[in-house]
Simulated scan of single mutants.
Amino acid sequence: MIADHIPEKEKIVMFEFMYAYARLEYCLKLKIKDQTRQTEGKNARADWGKFISDNKKIITYKDIPAGKELFDLKPKKQVFGNAGWVDINDTKNELNNIVTALKAVRNNLFHGGKELEHGFDYSPRNMKLISTSLNVIHQIIKFLKWEEDFLPIH
């Protein structure tokens, strides 16, 4: 298999993160709705922008301490051109910073080349980014009291 080179422990953490991220996006589809952008019969989508605008004054690093930890870890985002990987910018809004960092980790794991300057997808830094991101998701779900919809058991 394509992931045979990744140790089992790291594979489990990666899977847990990707599964939790998918469940969070399911909750966003269910809970965050903008009737002006949702048309009958069109694809449902996780509206991260509306989530941020609806909650940017409510959700802070105090509420999601793993979000501050994740942003301080400075996950990079992949860009075209010679730069390859660049830092994410501080938007001066804590929830936006949390979401930007979380999405960067997800996009790097799912879409990126799976490598950074210090190693491959299961490097200690990448595993710290992934495990911290998983904590962010759980803290968001708990803060918003979305456990019933987040957990796949009803």
Rank of each mutant, 00 (worst) to 15 (best):
M1G: 15
I2Y: 02
A3Q: 07
D4P: 00
H5F: 09
P7T: 05
E8R: 07
E8M: 06
K11R: 15
M14E: 00
M14S: 05
M14A: 05
M14Y: 06
E16L: 14
F17N: 06
F17V: 11
M18I: 10
A20K: 04
A22T: 09
A22E: 03
R23P: 04
R23T: 10
Y26R: 08
Y26S: 13
K29Q: 15
K29P: 09
L30V: 06
L30A: 12
K31E: 14
K31V: 12
K31W: 07
I32V: 09
Q35T: 09
Q35H: 14
T36N: 08
T36M: 01
R37I: 02
Q38E: 06
T39I: 11
E40I: 12
K42G: 01
A44M: 09
G49Q: 11
K50M: 03
I52N: 04
D54E: 00
D54N: 11
N55W: 03
K57N: 04
I59C: 11
K62M: 00
D63Y: 00
I64T: 05
A66R: 05
E69D: 15
E69W: 00
F71N: 14
K74E: 04
K77W: 02
K77R: 15
K77Y: 08
K77H: 10
Q78T: 13
Q78A: 04
Q78R: 12
F80N: 14
G81A: 09
V86R: 03
V86T: 13
D87W: 14
D90R: 11
T91N: 13
T91V: 15
N93R: 10
E94D: 12
E94N: 15
N96D: 11
A104H: 08
A104K: 10
V105K: 12
R106I: 08
N107Q: 03
N108L: 07
H111S: 08
K114F: 00
K114P: 00
E117I: 08
G119M: 01
G119I: 03
G119E: 03
F120D: 02
F120L: 13
F120W: 07
R125S: 06
N126R: 14
L129Y: 15
L129W: 15
L129S: 02
I130V: 13
S131V: 09
T132Q: 12
T132M: 02
V136L: 01
I137T: 10
Q139D: 02
K142I: 08
K145E: 14
K145M: 08
W146L: 13
E147D: 14
F150R: 09
P152H: 13
I153Y: 05
I153S: 13
